[in-house]
């Protein structure tokens, strides 16, 4: 029926892995764009400026309905055209990865702004009121009370968004990007389709493992930031101070 030769698969694993760096590169790039501009867009959605709010909501709605592959094609074909007409700059030599980063970035701005908005809203307004009534400036209230809690709440969504970014970026191979997917496609054509199972199952395994690691990593971060852990650490600190006091030592930072 079909054969899956482990030795050949193992070879392909090492042929593919180096290109994981490209995937990680555009994931990081798109995520950065998404977080920075997504934060602004979230503020637009939460703010009182009507035109900005409508723009943000409309942008998100369009990005939500647009297939990622279409976005990639549009950016790849459209941006050089626009840039040539407007700035007379020729982009034909630019590395494909930047187009992918731009496309993914545009879409992730929408998703991340939604995540940030709902995370902010889920932290109760009472916290902010209590903070400013007790001497915090609004900025401090945000930085010390709202933001940490919002961050904690949004981590599961962030990990999903990151995984989706990884999967959407794989479509970059259609415009010639050589990340792991692109490399796999190349290897497949050079082997005339003989090794197709070995190549693509290995590829799938790499993606799967990456998604599990991302999930696990985010879980780990969530745990370290969690309230339970804070309480735990507090208990440990208290126990430590009691033990030190009993030994007659000086208690630090009480």
């Amino acid at each position: 029926m079909f054969r899956y030769r482990l030795d050949v698969a193992w070879e392909y694993l090492f042929k593919l892995l180096p290109y994981l760096s490209v995937t990680l590169f555009y994931m990081g790039g798109a995520l950065t764009i998404g977080i920075v501009f997504g934060a602004f867009m979230a503020m637009m959605k939460l703010g009182k400026n009507r035109p900005l709010k409508y723009f943000a909501i409309g942008y998100t709605a369009v990005m939500r309905s647009l297939p990622p592959i279409i976005l990639i094609f549009l950016v790849y074909h459209g941006v050089p055209l626009a840039v040539r007409r407007m700035f007379q700059v020729n982009l034909s030599g630019m590395n494909t990865v930047y187009f992918v980063i731009l496309a993914l970035g545009l879409s992730s701005v929408a998703t991340l702004s939604e995540i940030m908005k709902s995370a902010y809203l889920s932290v109760s307004g009472g916290q902010y009121e209590a903070a400013v009534s007790n001497g915090f400036t609004p900025f401090q209230a945000f930085r010390r009370i709202m933001f940490p809690q919002a961050l904690r709440v949004s981590i599961p969504n962030l990990s999903s968004a990151l995984i989706i970014l990884m999967k959407e970026g794989s479509l970059g191979y259609t415009i010639g990007l050589i990340d792991i997917m692109g490399r796999a496609d190349l290897l497949n054509s050079t082997s005339y389709g003989n090794d197709i199972y070995e190549i693509f199952f290995t590829l799938a395994a790499i993606y799967w493992l990456a998604s599990i690691l991302i999930d696990g990593g985010c879980h780990f971060i969530e745990n370290r930031l969690s309230l339970e852990r804070k309480i735990e650490l507090n208990e440990i600190k208290k126990a430590g101070m009691i033990a030190a006091a009993e030994q007659g030592g000086i208690v630090r930072g009480s």
Partner: peptide
């Protein structure tokens, strides 16, 4: 969840 649709 962890693999791109195109690979599937």
């Amino acid at each position: 969840r962890g693999t791109p649709v195109i690979v599937q």
